[in-house]
Design a protein around this nucleic acid. Structure first.
Lengths: 197, 197
DNA sequence: GGGCTGACAAAGTTTGAAATCTGTCAGCTG
DNA sequence: CAGCTGACAGATTTCAAACTTTGTCAGCCC
């Protein structure tokens, strides 16, 4: 990392450095002074861009969640039939989380801590995901593939039913090779439940 | 608590005292010496009945889970139609957990710690719950109320879909009054998914 | 003058020595 | 003689003092 050639410090540079510091030192030992040192500035400068350490860590968490969910909009926009789209969406979300958990468990543990301490950021992120599912369900109803009395409630129920496969708290069970089959079984149940009679 | 009039120390007495000590001092400060003191014996005596502190805490956890799930066998044995039985089972389980979480949050937090440190005990308990659900699903199929290709897989999927409503890790969201409705929405989806076509 | 520095108070964390706890076992006791 | 006690070694936890971090702000500098 170390000093950027730029004239003025940006929010983005600070977030980048904060991620690097979190990766290196872990959530317990990463300090604002470390972040400032990584950037070659005094820690007072960091406080010009973020109101507090908490606000900085919230912003890092938000960025991470955004990146973890980056592949989903393409699934929503795809032209697959709604049932297949729902299945693809569920697996894409699961794969994104699982991949991060398995290929860098230490960093994932760091983000798990961040996620636990920033429940407001997480809540907003979950609302966005439920919203995406709502769009798939609505599209499915319009196409005659799905039926549901109350779309937002049904979409939320479907999302909640898949919690085990995207909540990082369950990451420990994701290295069981059966996990993907189990997600399919849950998706099967949801799709059967959404089918018009 | 304090000394029992009985001649010899029993496993049950120790478990009773251990619960009392955990309730009073919390999971971090409860010691084997405290348990022995509560019983008026030396801590060496406790080790005559339990191989280690870990084994003692596992046994306490097991007892607590057994009590928390005590109402379920009656639901399994009831003569309601399978779909209603599945719904009643889900709400009974949720109500048992929710009740404990809301009416003594400190004690519930203690058990949450125990549950987290005794994953083997929890695994066995979850297997038993999946087994109960399997019996409801099988009965439903026999009565023509349900259809499923693979009963154990489907029962496990249905159980996993309800994880949010019985895993104590989610207890923080159970004081939202909408929770029971949300469980109903998930159960609706599962029941619709199980209906024969 | 917008942005950075660095000294500062208050809050929180580390550290290591003292105290307590876990698990064992030889011997006592009813 | 089955079951309990209490002394013990090693592991873990506590506690208070020293140190570090957070967040602020007056003043510097480009």
């Amino acid at each position: 990392m170390v000093v950027m050639a730029d004239a003025t410090l940006t929010r983005e540079q600070i977030l980048e450095a904060a991620e690097e510091v979190l990766r290196r030192f872990g959530p317990a030992k990463a300090t604002v002074v470390d972040v400032a040192r990584a950037l070659g500035v005094s820690h007072g400068s960091v406080y010009r861009h973020f109101a507090s350490k908490v606000a900085l860590r919230e912003a890092v968490t938000e960025r991470w969640l955004e990146r973890a969910h980056a592949d989903l909009p393409a699934v929503i926009a795809s032209d697959e039939p709604a049932p297949q789209r729902l299945r693809t969406w569920a697996h894409t979300l699961h794969r994104a989380k699982r991949g991060r958990a398995l290929d860098d468990p230490e960093l994932f543990a760091t983000y798990l801590v961040l996620v636990r301490e920033n429940s407001d950021v997480v809540r907003a992120s979950l609302d966005e995901l439920v919203d995406q599912l709502t769009r798939i369900v609505s599209a499915g109803i319009a196409a005659g593939d799905f039926a549901a009395d109350d779309v937002p409630t049904t979409a939320r129920a479907a999302f909640q039913a898949m919690v085990l496969f995207h909540d990082p708290a369950y990451a420990a069970m994701w290295d069981d090779p059966q996990t993907s089959r189990q997600l399919d079984a849950v998706v099967d149940l949801i799709l059967a439940g959404l089918r018009p009679r």
